[in-house]
């Protein structure tokens, strides 16, 4: 019972982090057809921002705001400098551009900051455990679940209730048509990048809090996972991205819990095999629309 509960907590917190990342990727992809491989570097920027904040003597909460804001600004700068000039170019061009941005940032991190992992200090309280009526839970996973859950709910509300949110959903469905009803392309795209940056930043806070350190490659793995989640959910579907993220997290945690020790080294491969199975049954992803015909 306790073990099952632990695994459930782990899967939910991992899924929450993947979901924030996947949502950002899906939002940008659905609006401008770009798979942003530099998304992971936004996480890394937040982590360095936490170190910067601590160095400036800021309390942890303020350092988090600094780190997350840096990711949002970096995302918008990325769009303005690198992606706007190639907007509307072929998918391959966009993809290569995002690879280039990612590579340039990693080199900058290595040379201007540090090539080796740097420790990130998190409040000691996060490392503790709580007793929930006999069930023990780590404070950090619980905070992750609550934080990501509240954020996802708030985001759903923004996307459903506000005009900016509705415009973003419309742009994700048919970007050209959104312009034809008078919405400025630059504004929606900048908003989508800014939002995706903020989400990546918040995901990064939970991610580094668990690992305690940051290195120039830190963002790669979680964003790769989020990318898989987006594909599983159906490229371009926002709710699909969230479902895909939790599905992937449950598969990963489930395999770690259920596999016999001698098979544990293969769990990533097995997780991917399960994902491929999903895609064999539904090539367009769980929530993907079939090729839209106009």
């Amino acid at each position: 019972m306790d073990l099952l509960f632990q695994n459930l907590v782990n899967a939910l917190s991992l899924g929450g982090i993947y979901a924030l990342l996947a949502l950002g990727l899906a939002l940008v992809f659905s609006i401008m057809g770009l798979i942003n491989f530099a998304h992971g570097e936004l996480m890394t920027i937040t982590a360095y921002g936490l170190i910067l904040g601590a160095g400036l003597g800021l309390p942890f909460g303020a350092a988090v705001i600094l780190g997350v804001a840096l990711a949002g600004l970096a995302a918008m700068a990325m769009e303005r400098i690198a992606f706007r000039p190639v907007r509307g170019a072929s998918a391959a061009t966009l993809l290569l551009t995002s690879f280039a941005v990612s590579a340039v940032l990693q080199v900058l991190f290595q040379n201007l900051i540090a090539a080796r992992p740097l420790p990130v200090a998190v409040p000691r309280a996060l490392a503790g455990t709580l007793d929930l009526g006999g069930l023990r839970v780590g404070v950090l996973p619980l905070a992750t679940i609550l934080g990501t859950g509240i954020l996802l709910a708030a985001l759903a509300l923004v996307l459903r209730r506000t005009r900016v949110g509705i415009a973003m959903r419309a742009a994700a469905i048919d970007f050209q048509m959104t312009r034809l009803v008078g919405i400025r392309a630059d504004a929606v795209i900048a908003a989508a990048f800014g939002l995706s940056g903020l989400l990546a930043g918040i995901a990064a806070v939970f991610w580094v809090a668990q690992r305690g350190s940051v290195d120039p490659m830190m963002g790669f793995l979680p964003v790769l996972k989020a990318f898989i989640a987006v594909i599983v959910g159906g490229l371009g579907s926002l709710s699909g991205a969230v479902v895909g993220a939790f599905l992937l997290a449950f598969i990963e945690v489930g395999l770690r819990a259920l596999l016999p020790p001698e098979l544990l080294p293969y769990r990533e491969a097995l997780a991917l095999a399960l994902i491929i199975l999903v895609l064999l049954v539904r090539p367009q992803g769980l929530f993907g629309r079939r090729e839209t015909v106009r």
Binding site: R163, I166, A167, R169, A170, I173, D174, M177, T178, V181, G182, I183, R294
Partner: peptide, 15 residues
């Protein structure tokens, strides 16, 4: 080219 997944009102509000 209406925004099919959005509601009727959302289609109008967005414009």
């Amino acid at each position: 080219r209406i925004f099919a997944p959005l509601t009727v009102t959302e289609n109008l509000v967005v414009a």
